[in-house]
Design a protein around this nucleic acid. Sequence first.
DNA 1: GCCAACGTTGGC
DNA 2: GCCAACGTTGGC
Length: 145
Amino acid sequence: MAYWLLKSEPSSYSWERLVADGRTNWDGVRNPQALNNLRAMKLGDRAFFYHSNEGKEIVGVAKVVRTFYPDPADKGGKLGMIDIEPVMPAAVPVGLKAMRANPDLSDLSLLKQSRLSVCPITDKEWSVLCKMTGVPPDTEDAKNR
DNA sequence: GCCAACGTTGGC
DNA sequence: GCCAACGTTGGC
């Protein structure tokens, strides 16, 4: 399983709205690098949900429920989207400052490339962030327990 | 609201 | 295909 981080401005699409919707299609990604990441996602992959601009913190965990498919509105056929569902909120929202302050996260792509809206996260970074957010590393297990 | 960093566009 | 100009993003 791979791990990711999805970034969104709360004013355009917030975690609260994702929870209310129960599921959403993650579209509107234009950056080629971010699109590549979207394409690489597999069913069941986990992603932290990060609020940029307002809040600037990780607020929850989502999972991929549909892999990449093309955006019908895009004539060029380059754009596409995935579908995600909320898994659980972060018990402790983790802000940028806290991530910067943690040496284990110094390679985090979010910190290095602040403009990349879909970034990969390593297994190690995932477990570190899970500890910080108070999220069980294996959220599927936690749900079935 | 400002500004730095980064992406994209368009003229050559 | 290069590169300057411009637009956008996102942290502060």
